[in-house]
Computed example of a mutant assay.
Amino acid sequence: MALSLSKGQRIDLTKTNPGLTKVVVGLGWDTNRYSGGQDFDLDASAFLADATGKVQNDSEFIFYNQLKSPNGAVEHTGDNRTGEGDGDDEQILVDFANMPAHIDKIGIAVTIHDADARRQNFGQVSNAFVRILDAQTEKEILRYDLGEDFSIETAVVVCELYKHGSDWKFSAIGSGFSGGLAALCRNYGLQV
């Protein structure tokens, strides 16, 4: 059975799961509580940051228009524009064994596409979650349900995978931003 985490909790990934080198970061959500006449398009992204918490170059920002990091260590499996159905709405594959040495942290975020124009925010999103699966066995290792703590935010840093010595750990963040994807990019040191 997978471990269920709360906001702020951290857990070892590679140390407590010997041999774990590849994971699937599955993200999901529902938007059934609100109908404003327009579909919701939520987008997952990954920020590959150095020890200062900043992304060194644009190619290490993985999202629907740039699905793979330069060496393929992080890959977005594609944009789901509706979020329909059960299970993961979007997935990001992470290969710890091929991670460039300067990457210390991977920020995993979800944003609402055209949120301002569509008058949408995370207060209208429910059942948001992230889960980590062993990519080899497809066994779910952990799950973090974000809860209903958001109102006007249009972007959320869901979690971070970070290096501690030679091991990788998971941190349940759940931190909201107004300003959508642009605000997140600035937070990780990218020019918008």
Score class of each variant (00 low, 15 high):
Arg33Gln: 14
Gln136Ser: 15
Ile92Glu: 01
Gly87Glu: 08
Tyr144Phe: 15
Thr21Ser: 15
Val94Met: 05
Val25Gly: 00
Ser59Gly: 09
Leu3Cys: 09
Gly8Lys: 04
Ser178Val: 15
Gln91Pro: 01
Thr16Leu: 13
Arg143Leu: 08
Ile108Cys: 10
Gly147Asn: 11
Ala115Val: 09
Leu146Phe: 13
Phe96His: 02
Asp104His: 14
Ala2Asn: 13
Asp145Thr: 10
Ile106Lys: 00
Gly165Asp: 13
Ala44Asp: 04
Ser59Leu: 10
Ile132Ser: 03
Asp167Ser: 14
Asp79Leu: 08
Val110Phe: 06
Gly107Met: 00
Val94Gln: 03
Leu20Pro: 01
Asp12Met: 11
Lys68Asp: 12
Tyr144Met: 07
Tyr64Trp: 10
Ala117Thr: 10
Ile103Lys: 01
Ala51Met: 05
Ile62Leu: 04
Asp149Ile: 10
Gly165Val: 06
Asp43His: 06
Lys22Tyr: 07
Thr31Ser: 14
Asp39Pro: 12
Leu161Ile: 11
Phe63Gln: 00
Lys7His: 10
Asn65Asp: 12
Ser35Arg: 14
His76Val: 05
Lys22Ile: 03
Leu27Ala: 14
Gln9Ala: 11
Leu67Glu: 11
His102Gln: 13
Tyr34Trp: 15
Gly83Tyr: 05
Glu148Trp: 01
Ala117Asp: 13
Lys163His: 10
Ser69Val: 03
Val23Ser: 07
Gly37Thr: 03
Thr77Tyr: 08
Gly19Ile: 06
Gly26Cys: 06
Asp30His: 10
Asp167Thr: 13
Ile103Ala: 07
Gly28Lys: 02
Val24Cys: 09
Val158Ala: 12
Ala117Glu: 13
Lys7Leu: 05
Gly107Glu: 00
Thr111Cys: 08
Ser59Tyr: 03
Ala44Leu: 09
Gly53Met: 06
Gln124Ile: 02
Leu142Asp: 00
Leu142Phe: 03
Gln38Leu: 15
Ser6Tyr: 11
Asn98Trp: 02
Gly180Lys: 02
Ser178Trp: 03
Thr14Tyr: 09
Gln191Tyr: 08
Phe170Ile: 03
Thr137Asp: 11
Phe177Asn: 05
Ala109Gln: 06
Gly147His: 10
Ala135Arg: 08
Lys105Leu: 13
Thr137Lys: 10
Phe150Asn: 02
Leu20Gly: 01
Pro70Glu: 10
Ala2Gly: 09
Ser171Cys: 11
Val157Tyr: 03
His102Cys: 00
Pro70Ala: 10
Lys68Arg: 14
Gln9Phe: 04
